[in-house]
Design a protein around this nucleic acid. Structure first.
Lengths: 116, 116
DNA sequence: CATCTCCCATAGAATGTCTATGTAATATAA
DNA sequence: TTATATTACATAGACATTCTATGGGAGATG
């Protein structure tokens, strides 16, 4: 066996935020979004296509992102997504929630009984 | 309306870790576990009973915790759970995964294009 | 011309959390 | 002593999100 691939599973609920954040770097097509997330996370987070596309469609339905067909760097048909104002607001909301939950969880992980 | 209760939803996959960690403080019954988590998180994380008990049963099935009936501080019948060796190992695994994912996500959130 | 990489998409499984509901015993307040 | 609140366990079913698996097509590469 080549490598201990422990397949880092995403915490459910965090993908939207990662996509929104990635799109603050500018309009991007789906495939490219996963590449960015992969690289930005030092190859730790690999968003599966079966997670990505449903998420993008969901987010478009909610008005957080908008799509338009175009041509990718490698000259292929690709659907480009860009953040809407609503999406920018949503990102802020999700980042705040993330920070709160993050600190709450870390507090529990470091929790020590210091009574008396 | 009294308060803006934005109901902090748990990221799916983190509850087991919180329970395991809580039980490192010693044997505890279910209801008490949620109280501990609630207080340790500064009243941010309120684990619903519909989440808690299925989680406990799941974890018992996996051999991470063991249960036995006893009497609570308030003199009621309660099922006490304690960590097994397997559970302690599992906690380490989940904490490591949490730290990795945590740092990966935070990296993305702080991601800035610094090319050139 | 074959293969690889890029790019989109969906169905269905798996998982875990939530809401809602039910039960029951003890503690507390009226 | 009766009503209410709190403690404590439990499950069913809804819901949401991610995953695996699969399919297709078009341009790049050898």
């Amino acid at each position: 066996m080549p490598k201990k691939e422990t397949k880092a599973k995403l915490f459910q609920g965090s993908l939207d935020m990662l996509i929104l954040k990635t799109l603050t770097n500018g309009s991007m097509h789906g495939y490219s979004i996963t590449r960015h997330i992969f690289e930005a996370s030092e190859e730790f987070i690999n968003v599966e296509e079966g997670s990505l596309y449903p998420a993008l469609h969901r987010m478009a339905r909610k008005g957080w992102i908008e799509s338009s067909w175009g041509t990718s760097d490698s000259n292929r048909r690709a659907k480009f997504y860009k953040l809407t104002q609503k999406g920018k607001k949503q990102l802020k909301v999700e980042q705040a929630a993330w920070l709160n939950m993050n600190s709450a969880i870390n507090q529990i992980l470091d929790f020590r009984l210091a009574k008396g």
